[in-house]
């Protein structure tokens, strides 16, 4: 049939050729599209992480608040120094290491993220802390509203973060049942007194969400953190900025706190060396003596093993700096 006449391409031959060649070309284009789409997905996944990281950078230049609109519901994770996107078990999981100190829930699945930035000073600026919250995580602060310390502390939290302060005597867990059950994460923070412990709250709210309870001891600068399984962890905080971090991150606090303390060590080393260098340029003996005192305090500060020592040296360095300023000497910070 094919060879019916010399040189005459038969209809059957054309069909066969068309089907085979067409199939090859179609396969090529399907594979090409698949590779292209995978590449686009990879770019988009990493791009969202870079965008979030850059936006945080831009916001961190000054203290303030903002609401990020991610334009879509992304599943973002903030775990220690990692920002992640997507489900860890899924195909579209991407992660990016960041230098920022971010306190927030482990997972955010919302389009809108409320962010508050605050500089951590101890007593010189160490780092900017980022506090993150989404609608799925809710926090209550329970303390004595008559206490100036408690009112001061809670009053500094911007309203955009949506963290209400409640008088201990008026706190009734039943009032917050529906709010708790609609949350992904519900955190109750007690200041000094614990009217309802973790197990009582758990039986009230059930297992609809991750319940965490934090009991803050303001005299000691320590806290007990009960995670969603009721496991207890004892932590300490150095200055109010870290306590805010504890409130916004809950059981994920320790790792981020350790990173913050590493930065504290780095900055203290820089200030110690700065003071040493300035001393070598200073002509006035009284300034040299004061700077030498400051240098020793900074060295001891960096090597502090307990929180009591940290707070003690903090105050001493503040006083020493004021003294340097009064004497018209170069200051530590």
């Amino acid at each position: 049939m094919i060879k019916s006449k010399k040189g005459n391409t038969d209809l059957l031959f054309k069909w066969m050729f068309g089907i085979i060649a067409g199939a090859i070309v179609l396969t090529f284009f399907i594979r090409f599209s698949y590779v292209h789409l995978s590449g686009e997905s990879l770019i988009e996944g990493n791009r969202i992480l870079l965008t979030v990281d850059n936006k945080l950078d831009a916001l961190g230049v000054r203290e303030g608040t903002d609401v990020f609109d991610l334009k879509d519901d992304f599943s973002l994770g903030f775990d220690c120094s990692l920002i992640t996107s997507g489900d860890i078990m899924g195909e579209n999981f991407f992660e990016r290491k960041t230098d920022k100190i971010i306190f927030g829930p482990e997972k955010i699945n919302d389009r809108f993220i409320s962010i508050w930035t605050k500089k951590w000073e101890a007593p010189y600026g160490i780092s900017t802390f980022y506090y993150l919250k989404d609608k799925g995580s809710n926090i209550l602060l329970i303390g004595s509203t008559n206490s100036e310390e408690f009112s001061d502390f809670t009053g500094k939290i911007p309203s955009i973060m949506g963290v209400p302060a409640i008088e201990t005597t008026q706190f009734n867990p039943a009032d917050f049942t529906s709010q708790a059950r609609q949350s992904n994460k519900f955190t109750v923070v007690y200041f000094d007194r614990t009217p309802y412990d973790w197990s009582v709250l758990k039986s009230q709210y059930g297992s609809f969400m991750d319940l965490e309870v934090i009991v803050v001891n303001t005299a000691d600068h320590t806290a007990e953190v009960y995670d969603y399984n009721g496991n207890k962890e004892e932590v300490f905080y150095f200055r109010d900025e870290m306590l805010y971090g504890l409130i916004f991150s809950g059981s994920k606090y320790s790792c981020t706190k350790d990173i913050a303390m590493e930065r504290f060590n780095v900055l203290t080393r820089i200030y110690t060396e700065k003071v040493s260098r300035i001393m070598s340029k200073e002509n006035r003996q009284e300034c040299v003596d004061l700077l030498n005192e400051a240098r020793k305090m900074l060295e001891a500060y960096q090597n502090s093993l307990t929180k009591t020592e940290l707070y003690n040296y903090f105050e001493k360095i503040e006083k020493q700096n004021l003294q340097l300023e009064r004497e018209d000497c170069p200051t530590v910070y």
């Binding site: 230049v61 010189y124 780095v266 900055l267």
Partner: peptide, 13 residues
């Protein structure tokens, strides 16, 4: 903007 404000390099505030 970040480098100018970096605590390791900047003046206090």
């Amino acid at each position: 903007a970040k480098a100018v404000g970096l605590e390791e390099l900047s003046c206090e505030g």
